Amino acid sequence: MFTKKYLKTKNVCRVRFKLQKKVIGPAEKVNLVGDFNNWDENSGAMKKLKNGDFSAILDLELERSYQFRYLVDDTRWINDENADIYLPSPFQGEDNSVITI
């Protein structure tokens, strides 16, 4: 899931991405991968919280849409259950999550 916070002092939206342990089960690491980091599977490491959830905060440009997915333990791709929409992925034969700012 994610939450959007539009900043008055900057021309960006601060987005907090959160992936709950109850959705992914036990995991060692999660990477947030998408248009905002050129789909680099080795960047976008999310912080593991004490309760087993994962979290990351990004400032994203306004008036844009971004496709993304979560990569769990380098083996499993997961979509965001609260995505604004889903679009077909050209690489994986599945859908990507989309957030619109």
Rank of each mutant, 00 (worst) to 15 (best):
residue 1 M to A: 15
residue 1 M to I: 12
residue 2 F to W: 14
residue 3 T to M: 02
residue 3 T to Q: 15
residue 3 T to N: 10
residue 4 K to R: 14
residue 5 K to L: 07
residue 6 Y to Q: 14
residue 6 Y to T: 12
residue 6 Y to E: 10
residue 8 K to M: 11
residue 9 T to R: 03
residue 9 T to C: 04
residue 9 T to S: 14
residue 12 V to S: 12
residue 12 V to Y: 04
residue 13 C to K: 11
residue 13 C to V: 15
residue 14 R to L: 13
residue 15 V to T: 08
residue 16 R to M: 13
residue 16 R to E: 14
residue 16 R to K: 13
residue 17 F to Q: 07
residue 17 F to C: 02
residue 20 Q to H: 11
residue 20 Q to F: 08
residue 20 Q to R: 12
residue 21 K to G: 00
residue 22 K to R: 10
residue 23 V to G: 00
residue 24 I to V: 14
residue 25 G to H: 04
residue 25 G to P: 07
residue 26 P to Q: 12
residue 26 P to H: 10
residue 27 A to N: 03
residue 27 A to R: 06
residue 28 E to N: 15
residue 30 V to D: 06
residue 30 V to N: 02
residue 31 N to K: 14
residue 31 N to Y: 14
residue 32 L to H: 12
residue 33 V to M: 10
residue 35 D to L: 04
residue 35 D to G: 09
residue 35 D to Y: 09
residue 36 F to Q: 03
residue 38 N to M: 11
residue 38 N to I: 07
residue 39 W to Q: 09
residue 39 W to I: 08
residue 40 D to Q: 14
residue 41 E to K: 12
residue 41 E to M: 02
residue 42 N to L: 11
residue 43 S to Q: 14
residue 44 G to L: 12
residue 45 A to Y: 14
residue 45 A to Q: 15
residue 45 A to C: 06
residue 45 A to W: 10
residue 47 K to A: 15
residue 47 K to C: 05
residue 47 K to R: 15
residue 48 K to P: 03
residue 49 L to S: 10
residue 49 L to A: 08
residue 50 K to W: 02
residue 50 K to D: 14
residue 50 K to A: 15
residue 50 K to Y: 07
residue 52 G to I: 03
residue 52 G to E: 11
residue 52 G to N: 05
residue 52 G to V: 03
residue 53 D to C: 06
residue 54 F to I: 01
residue 54 F to D: 00
residue 56 A to N: 01
residue 56 A to C: 00
residue 56 A to Y: 03
residue 56 A to I: 01
residue 57 I to L: 07
residue 60 L to C: 04
residue 61 E to I: 06
residue 61 E to V: 10
residue 62 L to N: 13
residue 62 L to W: 00
residue 62 L to F: 01
residue 64 R to S: 02
residue 65 S to V: 03
residue 66 Y to D: 05
residue 66 Y to F: 12
residue 67 Q to G: 13
residue 68 F to L: 05
residue 69 R to T: 03
residue 69 R to E: 07
residue 70 Y to A: 07
residue 70 Y to E: 08
residue 71 L to E: 08
residue 71 L to S: 04
residue 71 L to W: 08
residue 72 V to C: 05
residue 73 D to C: 07
residue 73 D to W: 01
residue 74 D to M: 06
residue 74 D to G: 09
residue 74 D to K: 07
residue 74 D to C: 11
residue 75 T to C: 00
residue 76 R to C: 08
residue 77 W to F: 15
residue 77 W to Y: 13
residue 77 W to H: 07
residue 78 I to C: 06
residue 78 I to N: 10
residue 79 N to M: 09
residue 79 N to S: 05
residue 79 N to Q: 11
residue 80 D to E: 09
residue 82 N to G: 00
residue 83 A to L: 01
residue 83 A to N: 03
residue 83 A to P: 02
residue 85 I to P: 05
residue 86 Y to I: 01
residue 86 Y to D: 03
residue 87 L to C: 05
residue 88 P to D: 02
residue 88 P to V: 02
residue 88 P to I: 03
residue 89 S to F: 02
residue 89 S to H: 04
residue 90 P to Y: 02
residue 90 P to I: 04
residue 90 P to K: 01
residue 91 F to E: 04
residue 92 Q to P: 00
residue 92 Q to W: 07
residue 93 G to P: 04
residue 93 G to K: 05
residue 93 G to C: 05
residue 93 G to I: 05
residue 94 E to R: 05
residue 95 D to N: 12
residue 96 N to P: 01
residue 98 V to M: 08
residue 98 V to D: 11
residue 99 I to R: 03
residue 100 T to D: 13
residue 100 T to I: 14
residue 100 T to R: 08
residue 100 T to L: 05
residue 101 I to H: 00
